[in-house]
């Protein structure tokens, strides 16, 4: 099996706020990410697809096709958007790295028909990333 990884960058705004928490709890739990004016990141997304290379083409999948899928499913939805207000898939969710990575997984998985989606890694900054994979033990989220 070969794993192929494609990288993509997008910039977006967000803030963390849970209406079930009091203003004080929101500040304590989310810290400066709770600032209602929002803030933004240059997200770096790494999408890994696993599979065996096609004997005729020598490729697991056509990277151009993957690039187009990422453009449609991720960039068009999230780049230069406010994640709290403009991405319906994130409605009602706190737009943390973990939740965004899981949403991206759900968007990409049905679109990737050659090879299998193996991992979604989303960097919010060079010092922080979330990994989303399929849970083989079925004990996840």
């Amino acid at each position: 099996m070969i794993r192929v990884t494609r990288k993509l960058e997008f910039s977006a705004a967000h803030y963390y706020h849970n209406p079930n928490f009091s203003a004080e709890e929101n500040r304590r739990i989310f810290g400066k990410c709770n600032n209602p004016h929002g803030h933004g990141h240059n997200y770096v997304l790494e999408v890994t697809v696993a599979g065996d290379p096609d004997p005729a083409t020598g490729m697991v999948l056509d990277l151009k096709e993957l690039k187009d899928i990422l453009q449609r499913e991720v960039s068009d939805r999230m780049d230069h958007r406010h994640l709290n207000y403009e991405v319906p898939e994130l409605a009602g969710k706190i737009p943390t790295c973990e939740n965004i990575a899981a949403v991206i997984w759900r968007l990409l998985e049905p679109k990737i028909t050659t090879g299998k989606l193996d991992r979604v890694r989303l960097y919010e900054s060079p010092d922080l990333f979330a990994d989303c994979t399929a849970d083989s033990n079925g004990s996840g989220t």
Binding site: D127, L128, C132, D135, S139, T141
Partner: peptide, 14 residues
């Protein structure tokens, strides 16, 4: 039916 997902968070320190 959605497959269950596994999430992890990695933080870098120096």
């Amino acid at each position: 039916m959605n497959r269950p997902l596994k999430l992890s968070l990695t933080r870098r320190y120096h």
